[in-house]
Design a protein around this nucleic acid. Structure first.
Length: 431
RNA sequence: UCCGCGAUAGCUCAAUGGUGGAGCAUUCGGCUGUUAACCGAAGGGUUGUAGGUUCGAGUCCUACUCGCGGAGCCA
């Protein structure tokens, strides 16, 4: 028999069909049993009347444990009383794999328990919706860059040294070559690729061994990093806002059902259209002072500061030209004021914080070499990077977008751990 | 690393220093349209670990373990 998914049931009204799936839930009322079937594409209520099926089938539908795998057979009917609008006037059922005492019941559970059972928690409606949205975001990201002539040029995950020299890295032995480190950013390699291909992006996992314990941090997370040759900070901001608009509007258009499952207030996402507001670090500091924040000028913005700033706007806000001291060594200084780096962070609304960090890169060999020394970085490890300035250097810029933070923001979640199938955090690497 | 909060049934939680309970889940019974169905009944506990105070500790004290949230750092 042809395999049918619940999502395409509307095409089979009046026909007898079989669908494989899992028992999501069941209710009974004496001579009638309701089995709610889940197949990964939707939910289907299957109705078993005592008079319509064999005693063996009726008995089985009473005993089925939550998440038992079954094949149901019956007649597809339109039924306003059923969730989804269709139901199965069921005739038969075949048990594939029994499930007893399924731990995740349709009641409240604590986060520790759910994370311990993450491999099963993924089957829940909200988690399915989140992962579908995550997938659509990934596809939108790829579509956006592919359609604009970018080439995917992935950066290595095992690297010989710190990209930025600041974060704590995961370390591993690498044969006779000493230590290797899991990458914390593909950017430096993306710069090399951009000078080969013009417009590139790298999209892969990145790793931070920092002991961050907040709703915005994972030790392993995905980042997309476009890099463009012959681009300055303004080009970079133009690209970032067009990119964000495309991703958000695509998800709104194509994952409306999933956003509904998550009860996301989409009016906050509908505003994500160009132009996004652009303010300088100085203007951001003014906003903080107006809101009574004691902020020491020259510091980086903290999580609370970002929330106050983003609350002034109805869409993501770009904050540019940060004090160079708080930013990475490779960022180009503002020619109009050497104290500032040509950096830009995009702060998501509703307290979701920094989802994009980017900059125009330092393209002058002597200045870059000086920065490497100022930051006490080993010049030898960066010789290849310096080569990019020795041989045909050009102005170039790029940014990195954190996938999980973006998924969390678009889905309206309060923690990034639900945005990836199996989150890796400081105190959790299982399941 | 620092600060705060927490750990009681499979799960979510309650219990004035004085006989550890409820809802859900499970099992049994009832119900021909349920929507986290409902009604009745039953089983289910070394209260995170180790000490201490007390006639008596789930409750008070100390240490430890684990978890959650935040800071720093960052996407």
């Amino acid at each position: 028999m042809k395999k049918i998914y619940i999502s395409e049931l509307s095409k089979y009204v009046g026909q007898e069909i079989s669908i494989p799936g899992w028992v999501y839930h069941k209710r009974s009322s004496g001579k009638i049993h309701f089995v709610i079937l889940r197949d990964g594409t939707g939910l289907l209520q299957c109705v078993y009347f005592k008079g319509n099926v064999t005693p063996e089938v009726f008995e089985l539908t009473d005993k089925l444990g939550q998440e038992s795998s079954v094949i149901v057979t019956g007649l597809v009917k339109q039924e306003p009383r059923a969730p989804g609008g269709y139901e199965l006037d069921a005739k038969d059922i075949t048990l594939l794999g029994n499930s007893e005492d399924y731990p995740i019941t349709p009641k409240d559970h604590g986060i520790e328990f759910l994370m311990d059972k993450r491999h099963l928690w993924l089957r829940s409606a909200k988690q399915v919706a989140i992962l579908r949205i995550r997938h659509r975001i990934v596809k939108a990201i790829r579509d956006f860059f592919d359609n604009k002539g970018f080439t995917l040029a992935d950066s290595p995950i095992l690297t010989p040294a710190a990209c930025e020299g600041t974060s704590t890295l995961f370390e591993t032995d690498y044969f006779d070559l000493g230590k290797a480190y899991l990458t914390q950013s593909g950017q430096l390699y993306a710069e090399a690729s951009a000078l080969a291909l013009g417009k590139v992006y790298t999209f892969g996992p990145t790793f931070r061994a920092e002991k961050s314990k907040t709703r915005r941090h994972l030790t392993e997370f995905w980042m997309v990093e476009p890099e463009v040759a012959f681009a300055d900070l303004n080009d970079n901001m133009d690209l970032a806002e067009e990119f964000l608009e495309y991703v958000v509007q695509t998800v709104l258009a194509e994952r409306a059902e999933e956003l509904k499952v998550l009860e996301r207030d989409v009016t906050k996402l509908q505003n994500v259209k160009r132009p996004l507001p652009r303010i300088s670090y100085d203007e951001a500091v003014e906003i903080l002072k107006k809101n009574g924040v004691e902020f020491e000028y020259g510091n980086d913005l903290g999580g609370g500061d970002e929330t106050i700033i983003s609350n002034q706007f109805d869409r993501p806000v770009m904050v540019h030209r940060y004090p160079a001291e708080v930013k990475a060594f490779y960022m180009k200084r503002d020619p109009e004021n050497e104290k500032f780096a040509l950096a830009v962070d995009v702060l998501a609304p509703e307290g979701y914080g920094e989802i994009i960090g980017g900059s125009q890169r330092e393209d002058n060999y002597d200045l870059l070499l000086g920065r490497i020394h100022e930051h006490n970085l080993p010049q030898e490890a960066f010789e290849w990077y310096l080569d990019l300035r020795r041989y045909g250097t050009v102005p170039h810029a790029g940014f990195g977008l954190g996938l999980e933070r973006t998924v969390g923001w678009i889905c309206g979640l309060d923690h990034v751990r639900e945005t990836i199938p199996f989150a890796r955090m400081i105190y959790r690497n299982t399941p």
